[in-house]
């Protein structure tokens, strides 16, 4: 079985996000990036599935000039191959990214294409379904459990709904799946190994011509006024606790109220 994983880097939310001078994008100069959390789950699932069903895991990323560390990490975790797709100055819109991946996958054997269920950095979280439609593959989003059938022609997956309810779906392969979580915490790749692989790894590359846009016009971005409605409590932990206890007592909430 040939497993494909699509991965991308996204800004690290632990850092403060600021808007650029135009007001339509993030100020990107000082941003630090991390691998999109859900892509880590997708990779872990692919590795687990390969170890069960045999075959290989190929990781694809759009070449934005800064994906070497991401790809080296994939290899360090156990991927068999890594490939850069196209050549982009920055992350393109989802429709463009999907067209590039679809073009690359046309010439690459694939039984299961795994993406993260979504990435935090754009307006859709839908590259997977777009790729699927372009390649005429079935697609399931929000998948938490993947089992490949014994004949390798179908997969049984769980799709999550509200309230902890899940649907069990059977999907014909080849297919694309948007992964919500992996069966195990994504495995760790030692930093030293990643560093070493960055020097020695072989990276495949696929030329694609992709253009067009998502058809969306971003008029403005803003940082929401987060504490506009909240009353912020300042002070030491004890002072904060004191104030919270007072708020609760006032409203008759908790055991404190009874006492």
């Amino acid at each position: 079985m040939e497993f494909i994983v699509l991965l991308k880097q996204v800004p690290d939310l632990a850092e403060e996000l600021e808007i650029d001078a135009d007001g339509t994008d993030l100020a990107r100069d000082w941003l630090s990036y991390v691998t999109s959390e859900w892509d880590e789950y997708a990779l872990e699932e692919a590795l687990q599935l390969r170890d069960q069903a045999g075959g290989s895991v190929t990781c694809l990323a759009l070449d934005t000039g800064s994906v070497d560390e991401l790809l080296a990490t994939c290899l360090a975790r156990g991927a068999d191959r890594v490939v850069k797709v196209g050549s982009f100055e920055r992350q393109p819109a989802s429709h463009v990214a999907a067209a590039a991946f679809a073009a690359a996958l046309r010439d690459m054997p694939h039984h299961l294409v795994l993406t993260g269920v979504q990435a935090i950095d754009d307006l859709d979280g839908q590259v997977g379904p777009l790729v699927a439609t372009l390649l005429d593959l079935p697609h399931v989003s929000v998948v938490t459990h993947i089992a490949v059938g014994p004949d390798g022609r179908t997969a049984t997956v769980h799709q999550e709904y509200a309230g902890g309810v899940v649907a069990e779906l059977e999907v014909d392969l080849p297919a694309t799946l948007g992964v919500q979580t992996s069966r195990e915490t994504p495995r760790y790749a030692p930093v030293s190994r990643v560093r070493q692989l960055m020097k020695t790894m072989e990276v495949g590359s696929v030329e694609v011509s992709a253009d067009g846009g998502a058809g969306l016009v971003i008029e403005a971005m803003s940082v929401p006024e987060v504490s506009a409605t909240a009353e912020m409590i300042a002070g030491s932990p004890d002072a904060i606790a004191e104030r919270i206890a007072a708020i609760l007592a006032e409203r008759g909430i908790g055991k404190a109220a009874v006492r």
């Binding site: 979280g125 839908q126 379904p129 439609t133 989003s141 929000v142 709904y161």
Partner: peptide, 23 residues
């Protein structure tokens, strides 16, 4: 913007060419 909604909306966007604004 539910699991099924995510599936359907983006598939529609790809198939019809209509742009999609999510979240």
């Amino acid at each position: 913007n539910t699991g099924p909604g995510m599936d359907v909306a983006s598939g529609l966007s790809a198939a019809t060419g209509l742009a999609l604004a999510a979240y």
